[in-house]
Amino acid sequence: MNSSAPVITVRNLTMAYGNFVLQRDLNFTIDQGDIFVIMGGSGCGKSTLLRHMIGLKPPAAGSVWYGSDNFWELSSEEQASIIRKAGVLYQSGALWSSMTLAENVALPLQHYTDLEPDVIAELVTFKLSLVGLAGFEEFYPVQLSGGMRKRAALARAIAMDPDFLFFDEPSAGLDPISSRNLDQLILELRESLRATVIIVTHELASIYAIATNSVFLDSNSKTMLATGDPKTLLQQESTHPTVLQFLTRGTGKREVCTV
């Protein structure tokens, strides 16, 4: 694949629940290797946009393109083969509560590869050690803290070495230090897996720390107000005032906030 061509393109996307329109006319592209942030206030439809992109819910109108494939026009087998290349970290972790961590991480491997059980076991241990959970193989999700569950879910998301990593509010419910460690982990994983990362968040510190591209959804105008590198958006004069308010936590001072 040509590395300069966008890997994901969203065109004229409209999101709606029944007659209630959440967002309309969303247009943006995500390039290979981007860390793309979907940002915006609470309830503006960030997570719904993610669900449209990972094939859980068809959009009311418009299209999502993976390379040159119009995702929602594909047959369900072709959709499945695209989604198989994606790892998703859900807001609540969504680890399967009836299985141990090892079984959670192993399930996609057992399902999609013909690897020997002992190879899978080694892969599982390795993925868990990548997220700092070596030795927790036989624990059940309920026995872990919130931060550990997030990391375990991350290990499951990267089980199949995905091309795309989707994160839904990865730092929700984490303390600032755990949240920063998670950011570091995301950066390292992108480097080592050469994956494209798409993150839904409103955590400004992580936005500045890791984002290379972004889209800003606004719930009042029901459409996107900006797309681009958030640090550039912060400096540009042409940036919409609402976006600026968000990026400066309402202070209007154009400086990068860090933890």
Partner: peptide, 17 residues
């Protein structure tokens, strides 16, 4: 139902299971 609430079923779907 609880698995639906915890997004566990979504997680299965996106893994193609």
């Amino acid at each position: 139902g609880t698995m639906q609430v915890n997004e566990e079923i979504d997680a299965l779907r996106t893994m193609g299971i």
